[in-house]
Amino acid sequence: MNTALSWPESLLVLAVLLAPLLLPLLYFILYRRGRREGLVAPIVSLAEMAGGDSFFHRWHTGLKVGCLLITCFLFVTLRTIPGCLAGLAIAALAVTVSGLSWRRSLARLAAMSGFLTLLIVMLPFSGVMQADEKSFSLAFLPAALPLRLSGLHTASLIVFKAMAIALLMEPMLATASLAATLRGFRQIGVPVALTQMILLCHRYIFVFQQEAARMWRGMRVRGFTARGDWASLTAIGNFLGMLFVSSFERTQRVYEAMLCRGFTGEMPEIGSEPIKRHDIGKAVFWLILAVAPLVAERFLHDFTQFFHK
């Protein structure tokens, strides 16, 4: 069943298809006016907003991480547009309640926008057209390339779910120090070795970022300008090689320093966080909120029959 759309309607559909591209645009307009200096993209520490005071900041870390992780997987199982939009609204509410800057959440959404745009532009125009499938012919495209509603539906589901999960990352990871968050992950069963590696790796990322920036400055001072030619590739190859050499040498020094301080294979656990009654209350409240879209879409599926025809 094919419906031809007029020019204004077609342009409206095009705007919807390209909507994910608005996310990086919004991010750059609001926060990234200046030109980036240097070779390595800036990295913002997860602990930047850890000292706040909100529903998520005051929640037991293990319960918070567990509940938000369950929420992510619950949102992945959503199958309808209203359900996904409800999930997205809950995630947006979580960011607002946590009192965190929307800058970081927008940056997360912007990071995904390329892949999401690829899906939302490709899926409606590709795939096998079923005999009774709803489709539209856009005014600026040939009739042989119709927009399939089922493809648009699938792409929209993916986009909304991905955005909801991305938004949940900030309340999950940025409302406590990384050490506390990783302790929360250990409490829900993530191996100790893995969390310790993540903690150490996070620490040294900033060290190597500074080291790379210093080396890059040195190259710039000597007149190097990155181009796509052979000389530039050689210089970048040597630059990366030097970064790896210095990292391996530093690795040995760090390991020896750890041994000197009594490291026997396990990092000492600092501090503990007892679970209080209000933490459990918060967990119950949050899980009811998180499961609500799933329950609603399973019981109120008539609402979405339009998309399944």
């Binding site: 070779l39 390595v40 993209a41 990295i43 070795a193 310790q196 590696m197 993540i198 150490l200 790796c201 996070h202 620490r203 040294y204 990322i205 060290v207 190597f208 970022q209 790379a212 990155a226 181009r227 796509g228 530039s232 590739l233 970048i236 630059f239 990366l240 970064l243 790896f244 210095s246 990292s247 391996f248 530093r250 690795t251 040995q252 760090v254 390991y255 750890m258 490291f263 294979g265």
Partner: peptide, 23 residues
Amino acid sequence: MPKIAVVTSAFFIASLISVPMGP
């Protein structure tokens, strides 16, 4: 384990480096 963690940091930084290619 600590050795892999530190080296991973360097790989992480290297993966953030943008290599020019045409425009």
